[in-house]
Nucleic acid binder design. Sequence first.
DNA 1: GTGGTCTAGACCACG
DNA 2: GTGGTCTAGACCACG
Lengths: 129, 129, 129, 129
Amino acid sequence: MFPIDVRDVRPIYEQIIDNIKEQVIKGVLKPGDQIPSVRQLASMLTVNVNTVTKAYQQLERQKIIETIRGRGTFVADVIIKSIDQKELQDIRKVLKSSCMQLHYMGFSKQDVIEEISRIYDGFIKEEKS
Amino acid sequence: MFPIDVRDVRPIYEQIIDNIKEQVIKGVLKPGDQIPSVRQLASMLTVNVNTVTKAYQQLERQKIIETIRGRGTFVADVIIKSIDQKELQDIRKVLKSSCMQLHYMGFSKQDVIEEISRIYDGFIKEEKS
Amino acid sequence: MFPIDVRDVRPIYEQIIDNIKEQVIKGVLKPGDQIPSVRQLASMLTVNVNTVTKAYQQLERQKIIETIRGRGTFVADVIIKSIDQKELQDIRKVLKSSCMQLHYMGFSKQDVIEEISRIYDGFIKEEKS
Amino acid sequence: MFPIDVRDVRPIYEQIIDNIKEQVIKGVLKPGDQIPSVRQLASMLTVNVNTVTKAYQQLERQKIIETIRGRGTFVADVIIKSIDQKELQDIRKVLKSSCMQLHYMGFSKQDVIEEISRIYDGFIKEEKS
DNA sequence: GTGGTCTAGACCACG
DNA sequence: GTGGTCTAGACCACG
C-alpha cells in the first residue's frame, strides 16, 4: 500500500491520514471506492489497530471517508470543506514556523514559493490535458 | 511582551521560540541585545521557569541566542544555518500536510502561494527602500 | 546497569550520557538495540525520570540514540560526527586544564600520554585479533 | 595581562586560575614575584572582584600563590603537590569524557596523543638546551 | 541576580 | 507502556 516511516516527524496516524487524502486528491481513490478495513490496513502496514482506528475516525470526521455498518469503509463524495477559521489559523501558525526555519536556512521568499509550488504539483492530479 | 496561547497547536516553549526568532528576523532584537532572564520572561508570560529555560536552550542550540554565565542571555550574531537534509525533508512533509489541508478547504495553488507570500512578508523586515 | 555517583564531578545526566556512549563505542550496545525506557532506567538508577529524559535528549541530539514515538529508544547507526571547531577548541581547553593539573601532581608529558593511552584502551573495543 | 573570554567553556575564575598556573609553569612568573592585588586584577580584566577572590583562594589552597597580610600576594615556591586520589579520579573522568567526544569526531588514539603532546608542549617551558 | 541541575508529580499524545 | 509537556519548588555555581 504505502510506506509508514516510524522516524517520520509526523505520527503514524497522521501519515495514514495524509496518504489517504493524497490518494483521494490525486484521484487514485475515487468516491465510492472501498478502502481496507481497519484490521486489514493495520496488518498491511504492520501498525497497531488503534493507530489505524484513530486515522479513520479523523478522516471520517473530515468527511473524506465513510463507514457503513456491516459493509465496510468507502471514499466519500468529494466536498469542499467549509473554512474553519480556528483550523485556518492553526495552519497559518505551522506555515509561519516552517517559513522561519527555512529563512534561517537561507531560503528566500521566492525559494519557499517554489518549494510550495513543487509540493503542490506533487499531490495535485493533472488538471488539464 | 508577546502573548502565549494555551490553546495554540504549538506547545508553549515553541511559541516562545517562534516569537523570539521572529523578533530577531524582523530586527526588533539585534545581535548583542540582552533578552529577559528566564525568570523575568517566565513571570511576564506567567509560565513556568522551566518552560522558558527549555525554549532558551533550544534557541541557544540553534545559535540564535547565547547565554553568558551569571550575566544573562543575549541575541547572537546572525548566522545562516547550514542545511540539514533530514530537517529539510521534515519541513517539506509538514508543508505538504498543510497544503493538502488547505486544498480541502478550497485553496488553489495560487491561493496557497499568496498565503505564504503574506506570511513571509509578515516576519521579514523591509529589505529595500 | 551502571553506577551513578552523586559525588562525581559530572552531573548525573552527563554520567548517563558518558556511560551509554561508552557502551556504544565498546560495542556492548549495538545499532538497533533497544535501551531501557526513561522510566525503567530512572528506577534502575534511582534517579528522577526527568534526569534520564535530559540525558536521552542530548544523546538523541548527538545522533547516538533515536526515539520512536510510543515504541521506545534505540541505539542509532554509528556515524562520525563532523568536527565543530568551537567544540574542538572547548575540548582542547579542558584537556589543557587537566594536563596542567597533572603537571602539578608531578606527571611528566610521557606519564600523561600513558594515562590517555590507558583511558583510550579502556573504552575502545579491541579492533584486531 | 591575559584575555578573559566570557564565552569560554570554563568559568571566569577557572580561566584566571589556569592563566596564572600556566605563567608559573612557563616561568614567566617566578617564586617570590608579586602578582596584582584582587582589586587590581579585577579592574585589569574588568571582571567582578568576587571572581578574582575565588580564583586567588583556590590558587592559595593549591599553594601556588601566597598572600602576606599587608604586603600583597606572591608566587609561592614551586612544590610538587602530593597526589590526591579523589582529584586524580576526577581528572581521569574528565579526560575520558573528552576522549570519547574526540573518538566520535573521528580522532584515533594516536591523534589524541598527538593533541595532548601539542598541548603539553604549549605550556611547558623548554626543558633542555 | 543569572542560569543549571535535580526532584516529584500531573496530564497528554501515541500506539 | 512509551516519551513529551508543563508545573512547582529546592539547591547550587557563577559573578
